[in-house]
Amino acid sequence: MANIISDETIEYVGILAKLELSEEEKETAKRDMGRMLDYIDQLNELDTSGIEPMSHVFPVNNVFREDVVTQGDDRENMLRNAPEQKDGAFKVPKTVE
């Protein structure tokens, strides 16, 4: 395996991905990601100098519409699936002391 994923890298990826991994999961993730990156490294065989990265297949531009509220004031529906709610708002753990 050419790509060795370090403990620090998997730790960092866990932070970015907002995932909490057990020690066992971390080992699996390191192995799986290393293998995947080895495979993805095939792309380095390609000379892509001078090729623009293609985000969209079609020339897509920003799509504008009139700034008019169409789906406003739907609090009850928006809260319908909230795991916890209070006073017409989403309830989350305390974020500031």
Binding site: I40, L46, T48, I51, E52, P53
Partner: peptide, 9 residues
């Protein structure tokens, strides 16, 4: 970005 360039190819 490499993948997006590959996509163009």
């Amino acid at each position: 970005l490499k993948a997006l360039r590959t996509k163009a190819l």
